[in-house]
């Protein structure tokens, strides 16, 4: 079985309604769309499992809400490093090491960081 696909929290998936970005949302520029998709996709980033972000549906609350990322992480490399392997900063972090463990490709990590910077 492909572990990556069966991936994060299939358990939770069943209870989710098929919610899509509501029409009131401002359309994202195309380069940010990919990052958002990766971040929201339950078989990829599934950041919503743990974070409130960008009005995504049914967010969890393991981690802090992700907003004002540019202001809070003026150094993009620091933010990227956190997504790549959160345990570098906090060894006991429960946040999956998305880059290090190949959950996301390097390109997908970049796309997610671009998207984070728009929040």
């Amino acid at each position: 079985m492909n572990m990556k696909r069966s991936g994060l929290f299939a358990i939770v998936g069943v209870f989710l309604l098929p919610t899509f970005a509501n029409a009131a949302d401002n359309p994202l520029p195309p380069d940010l769309k990919k990052g958002k998709e990766v971040a929201f996709d339950m078989n990829k980033g599934n950041c919503l499992a743990c974070h409130m972000m960008g009005n995504g549906p049914d967010p969890g609350n393991f981690g802090p809400p992700l907003s004002q990322m540019k202001e809070r992480y003026p150094d993009r490399a620091v933010l990227r490093k956190h997504v790549w392997d959160a345990t570098l900063k906090n060894p006991t972090s429960v946040m999956p090491p998305f880059g290090k463990h190949g959950i996301l490709t390097e390109g997908e990590v970049d796309a997610v960081v671009d998207y984070l910077y728009s929040l």
Binding site: F9, T87, V94, P96, H101
Partner: peptide, 23 residues
């Protein structure tokens, strides 16, 4: 353990009572 590098304790001790999505 695993690709997501998570432990039983991570969810059921450290973050017990929190929400993972809507669970």
């Amino acid at each position: 353990r695993g690709q997501l590098n998570m432990s039983c304790a991570g969810c059921h001790l450290q973050y017990a009572g929190r929400q993972l999505r809507s669970e």
